[in-house]
Amino acid sequence: MALLEASDLSKSFGGILALAEVTLRVESAEAVGLVGPNGAGKTTLFDCIAGWTRADTGRIVFDGRAIDRLAPYRRSRLGIGRTFQRLELFTGMTPLEHLLVAERVRAGTGRLWKDLLGLGRPTAAERDLAAETLALVGLEDVADAPVSTLSLGRARLVELARALVGSPMLLMLDEPSSGLDDQERRALVATMRRVRAERGTAVLLVEHDLDLVSAVVDRLVVLETGRVIADGGVAGVLAAAGVRRAYLGPAR
């Protein structure tokens, strides 16, 4: 059984059909790339799966459980981690603090009475775990710098690290490479490969940079104006005529 099974998702905003009966499966530990031109509905699909948008029709089953009606935070606790196309960092906190608070929440061990008795501060074990995750994405050197002082590329890595806390079963990344320079892109690819190798996390990756996607994923799904127009192995999909048209326009 697939880890994530989204079937027949449709969503319209006013007159715009952002998703039209999209079906998407992600197996455990599989990496799937989701590509398509601007406005294809990629982010909308993410929002439906992670709970920020409710699809008009369709079903979403995650890990054998129907999650259509759960709030985003409940889906997160079930094991869906995500990043955002527009950064959603905790301004004013450091990368280390991002991870510490994420650990507490995912573990569900925080209690108000513990806070009031002075037992709410992070433990040494939690700090070690956070340091480990920071090392995984290569942010050790800025662990204690406020995120507002980081470059966009490193800020995206903080979001990635935050999404990784608690080892989610499914990691959803929305254009993690936008705004990054070439060197940062290579580092990002290396990081994603390392994450997959070390943790066996399933990845759903939205990306415009096809080279980057090809370097990371096993399978490619192409969306165009809310419809899946191709789904399969990377090389095969990229060669398909419809995909080339969607990306490059009709042949002249």
């Binding site: 955002f84 906190m93 929440v105 806070d115 009031l116 501060r121």
Partner: peptide, 24 residues
């Protein structure tokens, strides 16, 4: 300084980001 305070600080930074790590 405790969990509640940190969760609140997270919300102050970004409610959406906070929900994405499981904060109610």
């Amino acid at each position: 300084a405790g969990t509640t305070g940190q969760e609140l600080a997270a919300i102050r930074g970004s409610e959406i980001g906070a929900a994405s790590i499981g904060v109610n």
